[in-house]
Design a binder for these strands. Structure first.
Lengths: 254, 254
DNA sequence: CGTAAAATTGACTGACTTCAAATTCGGTGG
DNA sequence: CCACCGAATTTGAAGTCAGTCAATTTTACG
């Protein structure tokens, strides 16, 4: 059978970063029925036009969770890569307090809430894997809070780049030498709580210091040591704990 | 039986804010064996001296998740109130990338990881409730990111106070008229990404504008409309979605 | 009561923002 | 292939919000 060619492979890969999935779990996940929907750049997912009760998985392109403030400024609270689930909490809350918008054009897999519900009911281990995923999401969010809360502008940008390298590597989307990051400087500013102008100046400094280069939506890290040091970056929050057996009890002892 | 007098009542209450627990779930949760440990102020929970494999629930006092940066500054990433679970992710990750420290003296209930493991294995609904709890935690964390990322100092402090009112109300720990918040201005600064000096000036302004008063570790909101307006506060992220049936499928459709 | 921590206040500094204009880039149609 | 156009980037100058430093007062608590 060709289950391993399901479009949901990226999600399975992501879950397996931190959770053990049995072959049955994996097969069931990949057998989920879904609808592929192409999405244009700069449009919002889940904004009144989508049927409720669906969540989705990002298959192609880049997206951002963001919130618009009354004064018109925008804070991006997370970046979403291939394989990231979107809107799982959408059926938990009645309305979302933030928007998920595509930064580039892309594709999402739409999955019916009822299907997911049945899946995790039949496969408790997948439920645990998704819980674990939520935990890592919270961990990332904590780092973002620290980043905008206490670090200086150059460290903020550097930290964001470091996180993006690791998350791209995890998903097989590139490495330090080169990976895609098609965000405008305005987007980077909204990620880091800065202005586009200041991001521009900071990027110039990082480039002049030969830490990193950004060209045409791609990033190349020239000096990982220097960059991660400047950023106070510790990839621990993106990694599963090391060296434990892969039994589900070891994976999720609560 | 006197299960309803268990020290874990606050945790049950917290979970029931957003998840339906059957009587069996509730009984099982409250029957969890635990050890009450008194903790002095300004000490870290889970820092080398505690036996591994335990997580805990805050029974009395106030605690903060925080991270110390290389330059000596501190960012508080969450405040913990009575009933908040602490360290569930501690057994997920090998080492924590942040510290949980008591801000006041207090008491925690130490629960063995194995006990929790058995509990959620026997009660999948509790597992979902804890997952839901993690989701709300992530939601709160997102708001904190927005707060320090894009809001001006007065709005940041106001938003923190608004969140604290609601969370205290939810746990039956007071109301707008008066609730405990025994943080120093330095602590508030570390929550909001500001300095103690500036928090002092901001608090003076908020007080002069008759929005709020803070005296001896207690807060009284005088003008909720004004304060929440200044803060751009929307309590949605702290509340379960409204008006749906309490069946577990409705509570957690994924 | 005595002491240390916390709060308060003032003067000065600096990192980042704001505003505005010039340049480059990227995609599209001729 | 080139001309075009809006978006994104880049740069400069001036302004502001919040930080830093330092001294004083108040509060908490043994």
């Amino acid at each position: 059978m060709s289950l391993s060619f399901s479009g949901l492979e990226p999600l399975a890969r992501k879950l397996e970063l931190h959770s053990y999935l049995s072959q049955a779990d994996r097969d069931a996940l990949l057998a989920l029925p879904f609808l592929v929907r192409p999405v244009p750049a700069r449009t919002a997912l889940f904004r009144s036009f989508d049927p409720s009760g669906y969540s989705c998985v990002l298959l192609e392109g880049y997206a951002a969770r963001s919130k618009l403030l009354p004064d018109g400024s925008r804070q991006i609270i997370d970046l979403l890569l291939r394989g990231d689930p979107i809107g799982i909490e959408r059926t938990l809350f009645r309305r979302a307090d933030h928007v998920v918008e595509m930064l580039t054009r892309g594709k999402v897999a739409m999955i019916a809430g009822a299907e997911l519900e049945a899946l995790v009911a039949a496969h408790p281990n997948l439920l645990r894997a998704l819980w674990s995923e939520t935990m890592f999401g919270r961990s990332i969010q904590r780092e973002w809070t620290i980043n905008v809360g206490r670090r200086k502008a150059p460290a903020r940008v550097a930290h964001l780049l470091c996180e993006m390298v690791v998350r791209h590597e995890q998903q097989g989307l590139g490495n330090r030498a080169s990976f895609e990051l098609p965000l405008t400087q305005g987007d980077l500013a909204d990620c880091t709580g800065l202005t586009a102008v200041h991001v521009n100046r900071v990027m110039r400094i990082l480039t002049e210091d030969r830490l990193v280069r950004r060209v045409r939506g791609r990033v190349a890290i020239h000096d990982w040591e220097g960059l991660s040091n400047l950023a106070d970056f510790d990839r621990h929050y993106l990694d599963k704990r090391s060296a434990r057996s892969a039994s589900i009890h070891a994976e999720m002892p609560l």
